[in-house]
Design a protein around this nucleic acid. Structure first.
Ligand SMILES: [Mn+2]
Ligand SMILES: [Mn+2]
Ligand SMILES: [Mn+2]
Ligand SMILES: [Mn+2]
Lengths: 216, 216
DNA sequence: AAAATTAATTTGGCTTACCAAAAATAGTAA
DNA sequence: TTACTATTTTTGGTAAGCCAAATTAATTTT
């Protein structure tokens, strides 16, 4: 099996199981990877032979500890690259994901180590996602959706649930970035939108938007 | 045909034809690419369909102008990465080639542009090889082998013909790097070795070595 | 000009990652 | 419990990139 294929499967299984060793279905995997379920069946069988996943026929797939370890390493690479591209090379947070999807497959731990060092071994990537360290450890961030916030309170934008360039560019237009303070002035019952105070400006954010903003 | 395969063929044809549009044989290509000639026959036929090479049966292959253009772009990417890795991330000149072999295939001109900018749009890579600009232009360096030098004269190390880590590490041991001044004290007829003065130290360099040092 | 050598091409096969369609299995509703 | 539905697996097939062996073509040597 090609290393890049393996890495994409492990990473996807990891994300679908939300970091835990929960079972993932073929259908979910197929959708995320852009292949049909039949292809997934073949692939997970091979990953099973490689002892990277536990696989029970017609039931589902979960990462083994070896699989989790590799998955965390790929997640680390991805997020280190994203952060490096943003901090050192001036890419926007809407541009880094696509590039990191390619760069994460470069086979060199030394390179990742140097990149990380250059940017001061950060704990979070440009989207607020935690970066595992060399041993795979990271603190699971305790964020909640702004959509679940209460009127009158003030929050700090700490992450985004939607990583699409369209959404991120939208946030850029209002200068909303990780660390920005958001005060919830009013919640509209009718459509779930929120009137907020961001950067000393009153902005109304739709339910769509506040559901994808993670705050502390 | 996969982009990476195409790029490796174009780059190899380019290097074998020494930058000119000279004809390259299947056998040469096969050796460099680590495949058998039969594989090359198939590949160059496909490259011909893509109008990247001219191919005449049983005669040879040469790049078209479109092929040269793409080849120069890959060479640029490779050398920009090598230089970036050395200058910005502290890799040794013996380490950068292998990494650049992977990184050169990342599909983003913007990335290469940013890397180049960060290191001041250099004209030469860590091995003294010229870096083509965005339009593929570069000055062909007029170096000669130290092996062809004359006793008593002083030269500046400007490039290396052998890029192997073993050779480069050897040069590191004597602190021989691009820009180092080398005075030829004496040429030994018997084995072609040279007694030289480098960094105020007398060093005897074998024919092997002086044949792979390019000087001005 | 033959013969011998070397290089290139063709042919048949392999592996990987895919897909489409059919068959089997599991899950849900009646 | 049976029928319907959704999911998974199996079974052929394809395209790329590769190799080994056989064939053809070009180049050297005699
Ligand atoms: Mn990402
Ligand atoms: Mn991210
Ligand atoms: Mn190189
Ligand atoms: Mn180089």
């Amino acid at each position: 099996m090609h290393q890049e294929t393996i890495e994409n499967y492990l990473k996807t299984i990891y994300h679908l199981s939300d970091g835990n060793a929960f079972v993932v279905t073929n259908k979910e995997l197929a959708e995320r990877l852009g292949v049909i379920p039949a292809t997934v069946t073949e692939a997970v069988k091979k990953l099973h032979v490689l002892k990277l996943v536990e696989y029970e026929k017609s039931y589902g797939t979960r990462l083994t500890s070896a699989g989790i370890k590799q998955a965390l390493n790929i997640v680390r690479r991805h997020r280190i690259w994203e952060t490096y591209l943003a901090q050192e090379l001036g890419f926007g947070w809407d541009e880094v994901h696509e590039l990191a999807e390619e760069l994460e497959h470069i086979k060199s731990d030394k390179l990742v180590q140097k990149l990380a060092q250059k940017i001061g071994n950060p704990s979070y990537d440009p989207h607020g996602d935690p970066i595992p360290d060399e041993k795979g450890r990271f603190q699971k961030a305790e964020f909640k959706k702004l959509a679940e916030a209460r009127a009158g309170k003030t929050y700090t934008l700490s992450g985004v649930a939607d990583h699409s360039p369209a959404f991120l560019k939208f946030l850029d237009r209002y200068n909303l970035k990780i660390g920005t303070t958001i005060k919830v002035l009013e919640i509209e019952n009718f459509d779930g939108s929120m009137l907020t105070l961001c950067n000393s400006k009153e902005i109304r954010l739709s339910l769509q938007v506040v559901s994808n903003l993670l705050v502390r």
